[in-house]
Design a binder for these strands. Structure first.
Lengths: 137, 137
DNA sequence: ATCATTGCAAACACTTTGCATACGC
DNA sequence: GCGTATGCAAAGTGTTTGCAATGAT
């Protein structure tokens, strides 16, 4: 995605497009890995040598607040972020630790008494072994 | 549930029924709160004054390995455990932090290419505001 | 000059590890 | 007595906080 487009998206959400924010958002969009804070940090510190993890935390929680990213809690230890905010499922491989996006063909789950709750987020997490790890068994 | 029954269940799973393990399992079964390690610790330290968190960790991961409990990752900060291992959904209230069990009326979600993966666990997590917190708005 | 943003360093909180002690057959 | 279970203390890891420095208008 072009840098101008990214800046436009950030501005539309009311986020002032600083270098750090642009780079972090760009990274999230391009990475298909649902990166952790640490992954983002390690990959961007080359480009932005003064980058701190604090800024990444600040930025991602700001993005989340503005509805630009979603936070995943599929992982036991670390928080992960996803720039896709539409409804899709996530698969975590217990062998390699990777997290994959999965698409719904149909999603018709009805839940008892859910009308009494105010729903803000849905997360479907599936854990198991991914195709690659199954092969090398 | 009677203590004898608990001991029987533990033995059937190949877990030697020590006092700590019985109490922790009993607590999990009776609590509807999907407690964190800390909640278990605080509530049982009165009964078992020498109890340590290490033992609670050991015990719960042993239980998990034996299929007696499931681990929830709905929470950002803490791991929670649930003695119900059948498929049901979990709701986390972002106001009060409580976690509720929700029952499926129907669950027909089909996911693209899932046949390439080996599925071990499903988790449906919903976040929002619970009925009680909605009232006091 | 003022306000927002960044980022270092310290503090925190939860979890894991190492190892010595205690328990049970 | 020997293997298992327990639990203290220390270390480890991810996250949050306080605050000073920087940057933008």
């Amino acid at each position: 995605m072009k840098k101008e487009k990214l800046i436009k998206i950030l501005k539309e959400k009311g986020i002032s497009p600083t270098l750090q924010r642009i780079k972090i958002y760009e990274y999230l969009l391009e990475s298909k890995e649902h990166p952790t804070i640490d992954m983002i940090y390690k990959d961007l510190i080359g480009e932005i040598p003064t980058l701190s993890k604090t800024t990444i935390y600040n930025t991602l929680y700001l993005f989340k607040e503005k509805g630009l990213v979603q936070e995943l809690t599929i992982d036991e230890n670390e928080i992960r972020f996803d720039a896709r905010t539409d409804l899709h499922a996530h698969f975590k491989c217990i062998k390699c630790g990777k997290i994959f996006d999965l698409e719904f063909i149909s999603k018709d789950f009805r839940i008892k008494n859910l009308e009494n709750y105010k729903v803000l987020e849905y997360h479907l997490y599936i854990k198991g072994i991914c195709p690659d790890c199954l092969k090398s068994y």
